[in-house]
């Protein structure tokens, strides 16, 4: 790593720091204040120390929501990443098909998130939904995402994959298009198979964009709120209650500001750790490509 002449250029980010101070740091400090107090209303609060943290860290429903969240993010990534790469590989390389594919694929990304939830509620309804009624009547399988946890999970996963795989496709496609033709010519001369081309040319060249895709997809799926809130509301039972849904239930539903604030801080620290790890991974990928 080369030595920087000085770090004074960093002061140019000061305006951003001031804006972030108002939009994020002051609210965050407020949350820290709330997390150590029992609050009934403005000016009516009692200092309780670490009581809310003890309560939240020992809360079984929070543990369940956390594991559910990791399971959801893990499954989503396991399906979305290979699927996105596969579709990107299958997309046309030139001609009018490129624009047609790109526009069609990008459509799910343009729909507001709560509208996506509503679309999927109707789409999967067992009585009138194209998907729900189709499965129930044509295949004879009882499918009802409002009553059966597994069906709710399948619906949520399908929705998430339909909604966000396009992002992976677009990123992977951009990575593929950036590979110079000379690599493919060399592969052709060597008589490389399609798999060898993928393994030694396409995959290494896509590493940068795929790491970004992985980072974005993990964070988005880990913080998911609007779609499951609209689609299942966390049910049936608690089977699709993810961290954000449980947090809103505590902080706004029950108006338990103290426990809600403690929960927020735990959530925040988990997200911070993953962001940092992904940031480090991204940096390493960037350096690897330079070298």
């Amino acid at each position: 790593m080369e030595k920087w002449a000085n770090n004074k250029a960093w002061f140019l980010v000061l305006p951003v720091v001031i804006i972030v101070a108002f939009s994020a740091i002051i609210p965050l400090m407020t949350v820290i204040n709330y997390s150590v107090q029992d609050i009934w209303g403005p000016g009516q609060s009692v200092f309780v120390g670490t009581e809310w943290f003890e309560e939240m860290l020992g809360d079984k429903r929070l543990h369940d929501a956390l594991w559910r969240q990791f399971l959801f993010s893990g499954l989503v990534l396991l399906i979305e990443m290979p699927l996105g790469v596969l579709i990107a590989l299958a997309m046309p390389k030139r001609g009018w098909g490129v624009s047609a594919c790109l526009v069609t694929i990008a459509i799910p990304l343009l729909i507001p998130w709560n509208v996506i939830g509503t679309i999927w509620i109707i789409f999967t309804r067992p009585d009138i939904g194209l998907f729900g009624a189709g499965i129930n009547n044509l295949l004879g399988i009882a499918f009802d995402h409002t009553a059966r946890p597994l069906d709710a999970w399948i619906t949520l996963m399908l929705m998430e994959i339909w909604h966000w795989t396009p992002l992976v496709i677009l990123l992977a496609y951009a990575g593929l298009r950036a590979i110079p033709e000379a690599f493919y010519q060399a592969a052709k001369i060597d008589g490389a198979s399609a798999w060898a081309k993928f393994q030694y040319i396409q995959l290494p060249k896509m590493r940068g964009v795929l790491t970004i895709a992985l980072l974005l997809r993990f964070m988005d799926s880990f913080l998911i709120y609007a779609e499951p809130f609209v689609l299942t509301g966390g049910g049936p039972g608690n089977s699709t209650t993810f961290l954000s849904i449980y947090l809103v239930k505590i902080a706004l539903g029950q108006f338990d500001l103290g426990p809600g604030a403690a929960f927020s801080l735990i959530y925040f620290v988990i997200v911070l750790l993953f962001s940092f790890m992904f940031y480090q991974a991204l940096q390493r990928v960037g350096k690897g490509e330079k070298g």
Partner: peptide
């Protein structure tokens, strides 16, 4: 800053 509900320990922590 009343709405922020400051306490002495959190003020020390943040500062």
């Amino acid at each position: 800053l009343e709405w922020m509900e400051w306490t002495v320990p959190t003020a020390i922590f943040c500062s």
